[in-house]
Design a protein around this nucleic acid. Structure first.
Length: 335
DNA sequence: AATACGGGGAT
DNA sequence: ATCCCAGTATT
């Protein structure tokens, strides 16, 4: 399809959303926005982008920060390895690459937290390299326009869609081309109720012509969830509390939380004398359900080395999982 | 080739 | 309740 790229690019010029990172060619800004937007909706990422650019206007300031500081700003956004990799990569570029941002797809791909999508996004937008992005939007748009039924979460599918995207991108404005497909997927060619009437590709969209839009893209994935039961012990003497840092290879790595007992049966886990002062909080994540319960105990016990006693007023300086943060909010609201 | 990794919004 | 989001790293 020879006029694919011109069609979407001219549509994009007239219809794109105004976003805080748009218009910048600074690889640091593009990189930062792309990391934040991985598996994250634009609206959810926006305030975080603002916070990060406020605190860290350039890569040097980010490299000079502590990991805890970075995680604290990331708090609530999820996929915290993105924040740890972001910080590590900033330090790496600052210390080993002479503060010079890698400027090609190949070199970008070597950075922690930068995969094929992000490397293509940065190199095309910041350096005008002809590298095609393939993200959730691209899968959807291409599977519909070309009516491709290969599952997008299969190895074959990834290969096929990347190859097609590579053929469609042009030498002219590869960055705009990439952003145009994604913008189309985000605003017109949406998962449900796509606005085909206003789509610049509706005259050549095969799935549209065949009436199979809702059947594209095809996904084989079975998202299985598992249940986990978290019982938090809040040692609470009004002035101080105890928190521990999660270090094991699991969710919320490097984040702080109250000491935790994990297991289904409350009775078997909970020591005598503890009592619940809050209702059970059920938290649903994409791939696991976390049932959390908080037990207050007004006594600070002898501490293990891994435990940390802090003032209640200092707890906000520590990166906490969104779940804990919400719990603290509800407690404060009661008082 | 599968699985782990968050949290929020839409349906 | 399920799906999906401007995906990547690990197993």
């Amino acid at each position: 399809m020879d006029n694919f790229s011109p069609s979407i690019r001219s549509w994009f010029r007239l219809n794109h959303r105004r976003l805080p990172w748009r218009g910048s060619k600074d690889p640091y800004i593009i990189w930062l926005s792309e990391i934040i937007l991985q598996q994250t909706r634009v609206e959810q990422g926006k305030p975080y982008f603002q916070r990060f650019t406020d605190h860290f206007p350039d890569i040097q300031s980010l490299a000079n920060a502590s990991e805890q500081e970075v995680l604290n700003l990331w708090q609530g956004l999820g996929y915290y390895s993105r924040a740890r990799n972001l910080h590590a990569t900033a330090k790496h570029i600052s210390e080993n690459l002479n503060a010079c941002f890698p400027n090609s797809y190949r070199e970008l791909l070597k950075l922690k937290g930068v995969g094929p999508y992000t490397a293509a996004a940065i190199s095309s937008i910041a350096f005008d390299e002809k590298a095609a992005v393939v993200d959730g939007n691209v899968y959807r748009v291409l599977s519909r326009v070309f009516d491709i039924a290969t599952p997008i979460d299969s190895t074959q599918g990834k290969k096929e869609f990347q190859q097609l995207a590579d053929e469609l991108i042009t030498d002219e404005d590869p960055g705009d081309h990439n952003q145009a497909i994604m913008e189309l997927g985000a605003t017109i060619c949406t998962p449900s109720n796509p606005d085909c009437g206003h789509c610049p590709l509706n005259d050549k969209c095969l799935a549209y012509a065949r009436g199979v839009i809702s059947a594209r893209p095809v996904k084989q994935g079975k998202t299985k969830t598992r249940d986990r039961y978290f019982h938090y012990l809040v040692f609470d003497n009004d002035a101080e509390t105890i928190i521990v840092k999660r270090t094991e290879k699991d969710i919320w790595q490097h984040l702080f939380q109250f000491p935790l007992l994990e297991g289904e049966s409350i009775e078997e886990l909970l020591p005598n004398g503890f009592h619940s002062v809050s209702p059970t909080i059920k938290h649903i994540l994409s791939h696991q359900r976390i049932y959390a319960r908080f037990y207050h105990y007004n006594f600070i016990p002898e501490l293990d080395d891994s435990w940390k006693k802090i003032k209640w007023s200092d707890i906000e300086d520590h990166p906490l999982p969104a779940l804990i943060d919400k719990y603290l909010e509800s407690v404060r609201a009661e008082n």
